[in-house]
Structures are given as structure tokens and as C-alpha cells.
Design a protein around this nucleic acid. Structure first.
Lengths: 117, 117
DNA sequence: CCGTTAATTAGATATGCATCGAATCAATCA
DNA sequence: TGATTGATTCGATGCATATCTAATTAACGG
């Protein structure tokens, strides 16, 4: 597990994750959260993420999602970034490698963007 | 209004904004949405955004939020990026300029990140 | 042992981005 | 007119990133 993913996991463990409207982020929280948004801030990565998330059972083999117009090493590179940001989890199953969305982190980001009145 | 902000507004107008789990993003949707995440993907920008969002009445004068450790032109530069991404709105009121969170776009991003079962 | 899948490495290129200082401009107010 | 706030411009620097090709490595299955 990468250092960033560890920090992300720690930050997303309840009862962390303030809503945007609760209070301003600390510098450290801003670093962690910005890293996740940054990972989603590239069109190719966002499409890869979207392909995984919208796949049946919310998981997909690399072979199912790799068609995004860039080379194989570049796909691998982007998937690694998404893993390191704590957004995707990967698992080898036989010949293929499957990716799935990390549910807690996704919920944390969504909650962060949801204004509480 | 910037071209990006126009696209963003169009993309966030109902009944657009699929949830991540609904279907995979088109290339154009990925461009627009990634641009918003990218804007939130810088720690300084995210802190500025967080300061505005957590301020009373969810709006703040630049003078209230400018203390993020970078120069005045750099603060202005980041606020412009957040405006262009459609995330913040600005308004001059007398001597001061006030920023507030664009509610629809924020809700759209949150909805995007919320998995529907 | 060979084929397949995908991660990784290496090296290279090109572009983008954050940041600065210094200066200027625009809007407002006293 | 002068002071204040903040946007903008300019030029510059340094670092990060996206991408490629080519090659290699690792894990698995037959």
C-alpha cells in the first residue's frame, strides 16, 4: 500500500471527512484530498475510472477497459496512479487483472462535496 | 463566462450528470468533468475553495481567504482557475470582491461520485 | 516450454503548471 | 487626488506530467 493510499485510508476512516461547509481543510487534509481529485483530473484516467465503475459488478478486467486511445504502458501508468490515490483496487485472477472502485474513498469524496445545511 | 464554464453549465444542467455507476463517460464528458476535478486537484486551490465554502453564508471576501502562503498574483491566478472551472462565482461589492461556491456544479460533482445501486 | 496479460523499466520528448517579482490597471471610496 | 483591493500582464524558472517506443519482467495457464 502506498504512503498516499495509507494517508487516504486514514483520512477517509470515520469520523473524519468533513463536509466542505463544516470547516476549512487543514494543510494536510488539503494535500490528501487534492491528490485524489488530481488523480481524477486527467481525462484518460477519468475514463478508465468511469469504465471500471460502470462495469457490471463494478469491476473490470484491464482487457475490458484498456481501449482509451493510449499505449499499453500508458494505461498501466494511469491505473497505477489511480491505485496510489486510493481510488482503485486491483487483484489478479488467473491470467487477468481486475480493478474495482474503492467504495469508502469514493463515498468520502462524495460526502466532502455535499454541502450540509 | 469562459468556454469551459459554458460547457460545464451545459453538462450540469439536468437531466445530464450520470452517476459513475450508470454508464461510462463519453470523451467530451470526461474532458469537462476532469477539468473540474483538476481545478480541485491543487492543494492551494482546494484550500481556497474550502475557505470560501466553509465561510459564513458560504461566501468570502478575497481578503478573508488570501492567507494561503503564496503571493497575491498567485492567489488571483488560482481563483481565476476555480472560476473558469465553474466552481466559484465572484462579485464585486464596493472595495471588496466576494467569492461564493457555485451550488449546481458542486451538487453535480457530488452526484457523479455517488454510486447508485 | 510457450503464449498471454499486464506491470515495469528506461530513455526521450514535449507540454503544462505553480510560482515568483515587479509592474500595471481597474474599481471603489474617502 | 490619493489610498486600497484585487485582477492582470510579463518574463522567468523549475518541476511535474503525459506520452511514446522498445524492451523486459512477472504471473498464470495449457
Amino acid at each position: 500500500m502506498s504512503k498516499l493510499a495509507q494517508l487516504a485510508a486514514a483520512a477517509s476512516a470515520p469520523p473524519c471527512c468533513p463536509s466542505l461547509t463544516d470547516r476549512e481543510l487543514t494543510e494536510e487534509e488539503a494535500e490528501i484530498t487534492a491528490a485524489m481529485f488530481k488523480a481524477l483530473g486527467d481525462p484518460v484516467r477519468l475514463r478508465l475510472f468511469s469504465k471500471v465503475a460502470s462495469h457490471p459488478d463494478r469491476e473490470a478486467c484491464v482487457c475490458d477497459i484498456a481501449d482509451v486511445g493510449v499505449s499499453q504502458p500508458t494505461v498501466s501508468h494511469h491505473l497505477k496512479k489511480l491505485r496510489e490515490a486510493g481510488l482503485l483496487l486491483s487483484e489478479r485472477r488467473g491470467t487477468w487483472v481486475y480493478y474495482r472502485v474503492a467504495p469508502a474513498v469514493l463515498a468520502a469524496l462524495s460526502g466532502f462535496l455535499t454541502a450540509r445545511d
